[in-house]
Simulated assay, not measured.
Amino acid sequence: MEINERISQYRQDIKSDRVDMSFGEIINMYKDDEIIISPEYQRAFRWDLQRQTDFIESILLGIPFPSIFVATNADGTWELIDGLQRISTVLSFFGELKNPEKNHLTLRSGSIVPELEDITIDTLPLDLKLAIKRTPCRVEIIQKDSHFEMRYELFKRLNTGGEGLTRQEIRNCIFRGFENYRYFSDIITACSSNEDFREIVNISSEIQEKMMYEELFLRFFSLHAFRVSYTEKVIQDFFDKIMKKQCETPDKEIIARAAQIFTEICSYLRPLGYEIFKLARLNFSTSMFDAILLSLSTTTKDYKSIAQDTFKARVDLLREDDAFKRNAGAASSNASAINNKLIIARRILLDDTE
């Protein structure tokens, strides 16, 4: 296909429009559930107080700011794609944000206007309050008849900034519209909330907020159940494919069985502590995570009969194995490296050479 033809094809896949709206109109649409900030997206509101203050100050001073992007849903509502930090800041300042923990913004000293210190919506002079509500905001609208893959690609590209969403947060936003989204999503939520799992994967609250636990279960599920179909150059694209498929037409028996296996493995590993996933300077290594969980989930041997102190000693041997370390390097998430690590882990951890 010629380059001009290819570009023309993809341009036709994107149907867009634009409109200028005041922040007051956007606030009212949000209150009436006409513009949607999904729960998964709301929790990614991460600007600190100073950045929020600076944005309110910019509006008051008439400093230009970028457009926001929304996607039109089948029912005509808008789904926020890009602009979360800006829109959430205004909603929080006006006390309208539906996340109570991040609502009712109190400003700090502005970078230009220090008098903003401790100002709230109730103490801001009326003329300035009205000035914010009447400030126009350019809204770029991705129409509902745009091709799904292009909408998803837009979502990924528009969320690449310092406060952008992680790939798992994007998945939880973009796949919400699928008919069977809730079935697979509920399994991910249940397994990622498993107490044993959270004990052995000890991550910071900041990373936790970015849906790291959820992505780790998706990682396990994808590699456990569909590793043979992993052909993508980037493993995150593989996870996209698996989640899309399971949100469209879930393989319910495979999902249920994988969830049960995952739960049993986490229960067995819990007494060993989160140190089992350390590798070199990393407190948590996906190479160790893949090797340990996949070796246990795919073996025909009864791993539960192995004494846990014995298993932990074997984990130490795996960590120091030269062949394993070579496959745990920069390209550790490609299909070949994952398969090699699994073979090595089965041999060392389980004396399994199948």
Rank of each mutant, 00 (worst) to 15 (best):
N28H: 08
L49S: 08
S58N: 02
D33Q: 00
I26W: 08
L60S: 03
E40P: 04
F45R: 11
D32T: 06
Q50F: 10
S22W: 10
R43V: 07
D48W: 02
D33Y: 13
T53M: 02
F45H: 12
N28T: 11
Q42W: 03
F45K: 07
D20S: 14
D20E: 14
S22R: 06
S58Q: 01
R18S: 15
P39M: 05
M21F: 12
S58P: 01
E57R: 05
D33A: 06
R51W: 06
S38G: 04
W47L: 06
F23N: 10
D20I: 07
I27Y: 09
Y30I: 10
D54Y: 03
I27F: 08
D32N: 15
F23M: 15
Y41G: 02
E40Y: 12
I59C: 06
L60A: 01
I35T: 08
A44P: 02
E57A: 05
L60Q: 01
E57L: 03
L61K: 12
I56V: 15
F45C: 05
Y41M: 08
A44I: 01
I35E: 03
D33K: 14
R46W: 01
W47I: 07
K31W: 01
Q52K: 14
I56M: 11
I36W: 13
D32E: 12
D48Q: 07
K31G: 04
I36N: 08
M29L: 15
V19P: 11
E40V: 06
E57V: 01
